[in-house]
């Protein structure tokens, strides 16, 4: 397992990680994984040999590696036009339906989970929503559950995003949903939004899902960009299988579907809607 210079490559390190932990990053895209592992070696002052040794012998360190590899930073109402579209074109249909099931796949630190809850609340359908949010990183999930975000620098941007998401409508205030704690320099989600979502630890690479229900909306924003084409396709297929017909999949603004899925989803504005096209298995 050595290259011509006698050194382990990043790809080979991933095999070590796969062998001695539940995590499999082998199908992450080369570019991102190389960079993340280089960063880990720099941040912890480790050679490749030391990194491998620590990975084999220190479970707590493995969790740090997972967090470092999967970092995906986001913000409340990132890309406001997407949220505006959901508010105006997706949510109204649920006014007369008994339920709305939502899954945030790869929710990271939860900003988009709370953004969506704010939309649901303002649309008056918050109570009939069933919301799941999953991520591979324990630490990111813990942060997501807390719903506490840095106040300074962010507050104005968040309010601006919110204004843009609610343009042509009554614009709520960030402070309707978050308490401001000046001492801890944080925006903290108010209790009525905090207890609604079920946060579950889940690795998208693993196929079995931690819930039985199907979904009306699946969010997976800026997660697939870290995966290679094969893994991307498997995950999009999984979303397809777990969406109700007509259900909506929301990807990052610069993520697209490959050719095969173009018949299975119809692009509507910035989101993808599951089509009813009949597909033979063989």
């Amino acid at each position: 397992m050595q290259n011509s210079e006698g050194k382990m490559t990043y790809k080979e390190y991933l095999l070590v990680l796969k062998e001695c932990s539940p995590y499999d990053f082998c199908e992450y895209s080369d570019n991102s994984i190389d960079r993340r592992i280089q960063k880990i070696m720099r941040d912890y002052h480790l050679t490749m040999d030391e990194l491998i040794h620590k990975t084999r012998n220190d479970e707590a360190f493995v969790e740090l590696v997972v967090e470092a590899i999967t970092v995906n930073t986001t913000e409340l109402f990132r890309d406001p036009p997407v949220w505006k579209f959901i508010r105006e074109n997706v949510l109204p249909a649920f006014k007369n339906r008994p339920k709305i099931n939502i899954w945030h796949a790869g929710c990271s630190t939860g900003q988009e989970v709370y953004s969506m809850m704010i939309l649901l609340h303002e649309a008056g359908i918050f109570d009939k929503a069933e919301i799941y949010a999953s991520d591979i990183s324990k630490k990111a999930l813990e942060n997501a559950k807390k719903g506490a975000y840095k106040y300074s620098f962010n507050h104005n941007k968040y309010q601006e995003n919110l204004n843009a998401a609610f343009a042509d409508s009554v614009v709520p205030k960030i402070t309707d949903f978050f308490e401001i704690s000046k001492e801890s320099d944080q925006l903290i989600i108010k209790p009525f939004l905090k207890t609604k979502t079920k946060f579950v630890r889940h690795d998208l690479v693993k196929q079995e899902l931690p819930f039985y229900s199907k979904f009306d909306i699946i969010f997976c924003r800026n997660v697939l960009i870290y995966f290679n084409g094969g893994l991307q396709s498997r995950i999009v297929q999984c979303f397809h299988d777990n969406l109700f017909p007509g259900g909506v999949m929301v990807l990052g603004t610069h993520e697209t579907l490959n050719g095969f899925f173009k018949t299975k989803f119809a692009k509507k504005g910035p989101v993808y809607s599951r089509t009813n096209t009949f597909h033979f298995k063989y």
Binding site: N31, S32, N72, T73
Partner: peptide
């Protein structure tokens, strides 16, 4: 490079985007 994304060139001559930290 799109707003709020890092942009990379991949070995196969394609673009890769990322939302990792600034």
């Amino acid at each position: 490079a799109p707003s709020n994304y890092h942009m990379f060139i991949e070995i196969d001559g394609s673009i890769a985007l990322s939302t990792e930290e600034s």
